[in-house]
Simulated scan of single mutants.
Amino acid sequence: MTPLDTSLPDTDAAAANGLLFVASDVDADDDADFNRWYDQEHVEERVRIPGFLSGARYTSLEGGRKYLGLYRTQSLAVFRSPDYRAAFEKQTPWSVANLDRMRQPIRRVCAVRAVTGLGSGSHAVVLPLPMAADTEALVARAARIGKALTEQAGFVQSYLLVPDTALSTPLPRESTEGRVLQPMLVIETSSAAAACTARTTAAVAFDADPATGWLLALGWKLSAAELR
């Protein structure tokens, strides 16, 4: 049997993971309790939902919102499941309080496409991309760019997030005026310097503005396989 070549990008829509992308700012007075809630309750609570694979927390170094949570799932179907609906509809009082503390929140439920590389990086870039009329052409382009990024020092993984319009319902405090569900390229690296270099390379390749790319540091990550 020929071994799987993990350097080749995964562009199969049928096999795509899902991903919940939640970003927000928080007032300084609420910051400590917000982080306790996320670290002591919310991440584990979400990762325990059947079909969730992992949850990770990031803090912004440049651009975007101060905090970002990324939750990988087996597929987009997980977000239509009774288990997810129950968790979403039956929030704890602590969750209700902290969801209300989110400022300028962004919630997207996305398909994870054009996956290139393996592992989790200490830093990440989120690069919003122009809207595309042809999703599959965008996926192919992201795969080519991801393959080129593998040649750069510090590259770990890249993937394209394609928001699902029906599933990306807004958070309570999220503005719906002018709300655009842009695709996003996520690049994970082993250092901040590598992330900056990758951000510039990807932005040029996508005809995007590098200044719109978020630069983030990983706080911590929980895998479903770690739960008892």
Score class of each variant (00 low, 15 high):
47 V>I: 10
161 L>D: 12
188 E>D: 03
198 A>F: 04
187 I>N: 08
149 L>T: 10
64 G>Y: 03
161 L>S: 07
214 W>P: 09
23 A>L: 05
31 D>L: 10
36 R>L: 12
24 S>E: 11
140 A>C: 11
33 D>W: 00
120 S>V: 13
29 D>P: 01
29 D>M: 02
62 E>P: 00
132 A>N: 09
87 A>S: 13
182 Q>M: 10
52 F>T: 03
162 V>I: 13
133 A>C: 13
107 R>I: 06
12 D>R: 14
47 V>C: 09
1 M>I: 12
122 S>V: 01
89 E>F: 00
224 A>K: 11
30 D>L: 03
33 D>T: 08
132 A>E: 12
34 F>T: 00
86 A>W: 03
117 G>L: 04
20 L>P: 07
201 T>H: 15
184 M>P: 00
5 D>S: 07
224 A>M: 06
200 T>N: 13
114 A>I: 05
24 S>C: 14
23 A>Q: 08
32 A>H: 09
86 A>Y: 09
30 D>E: 11
180 V>Q: 15
66 K>P: 04
94 W>F: 07
11 T>N: 13
96 V>C: 12
4 L>F: 09
205 A>N: 10
51 G>M: 04
152 Q>E: 12
88 F>R: 12
30 D>G: 07
140 A>M: 11
30 D>C: 11
68 L>I: 01
20 L>I: 01
66 K>V: 08
188 E>S: 01
138 L>E: 05
94 W>Y: 05
204 V>C: 10
106 I>S: 15
109 V>P: 14
